[in-house]
Design a protein around this nucleic acid. Structure first.
Lengths: 184, 184
DNA sequence: TCCTTACTGTAGCAGTCGCTAAAGAATCCT
DNA sequence: AGGATTCTTTAGCGACTGCTACAGTAAGGA
């Protein structure tokens, strides 16, 4: 049944791969960089993960679970303004957190366009809920405001990759919040 | 003195190279893609432009002259709000203009970080002028507001690359404008 | 103990990367 | 015409890309 046991920890190898993809993106991360960072030879990587593409998919899924979903859970807060404020503040912190690469994988990796669309849809849904609840002006189109918020988040991520500090991103976040129209 | 004349138009070759770099970025554009698009062999490219790096630098300079500076000239408008509105609107149009690649080269190419810093500095300077002129609230830090505006522009560029339409970008632009505090 | 199974390291596949040596072709100058 | 100059094409450099055939190794089951 069982053969020779794997000589490396698949789970921590996935962490290492995620870090590499997050830092440099899919295209700029070579298989040889990955195997070197993990400390294995190519056949071991391919036995465990099938292909660079599948390895990325699994690393991205881990990113979603471990970083992205928690961040998006900020939207569950009561109060639309508080929810968006929490999302922006959490993003500012996450995008500049020491020990992880700067910026957001979802917002910077071209291959994750689908996740960006999910993200925008979730924000739009939260805004619509706010309009139903009466704590967001119904005069603004929720989809459009969600697109603006996504754009601000993408800009914050890009700024972080350019060396922007936590304080700079928090300033962006704080100023961006003032565009949420309160109900009259 | 003069030897065999160049068989291709250096100027239009530079246009072709700019289009390629703009569309896919520096790293994702190979020399063989460039020579194929221009219709020449590698030695001709190297005789005319020295290296991929120098070719990119020249193409980027052309981008700045031909697209970026005109866009930034929107800031010269009288009225700070009008100036920022014009910049955002011009960006929405430029990032989705048919016949040119989607998005902004300055905002999407990692190598052009310095230009992004120039851009932010120019926006900040315009905002400070607005505060001196009294048509922008002096209570907001111009550098921070400039960072927010740059973030919105970067987000618009990213959205354009994801397939965002002119109308979507205009909606972002219009909503973003509401964060400009008027003087009390 | 021996077989089966599944991993390991070595080595290298075909293809592409940025770039260039060498030789032929087209121009100007004398 | 002949030489000098500068481009062109052909061909290919060494290094790297994602990936894999092959042989050796370490485990469990009979």
């Amino acid at each position: 049944m069982a053969g020779r046991p794997r000589s490396f920890d698949r789970d921590s190898a996935l962490d290492t791969a995620l870090d590499a993809f997050w830092r440099a993106g899919y295209e700029q991360t070579s298989v040889s960089q990955l195997t070197q960072a993990i400390g294995i030879q190519p056949p071991s990587l391919y036995a465990a993960f099938s292909s660079k593409d599948k390895l990325f998919a699994e690393a991205a899924e881990r990113y979603l679970e471990r970083f992205h979903r928690g961040l998006m859970a900020s939207l569950d807060r009561a109060g639309t303004r508080e929810a968006i404020a929490a999302l922006l503040e959490a993003a500012a912190r996450a995008h500049t957190r020491p020990g992880t690469p700067p910026g957001c994988l979802v917002l910077s990796e071209p291959r994750l366009r689908g996740e960006r669309e999910n993200m925008r849809a979730q924000i739009a849904e939260r805004l619509r809920r706010g309009q139903r609840d009466g704590d967001l002006s119904p005069e603004v189109e929720a989809g459009e405001l969600a697109a603006l918020i996504e754009a601000v988040l993408a800009g914050m991520s890009a700024r972080a990759r350019d060396g922007g500090t936590l304080e700079e991103l928090q300033a962006i976040s704080r100023l961006a919040l003032s565009l949420l129209p309160v109900p009259h």
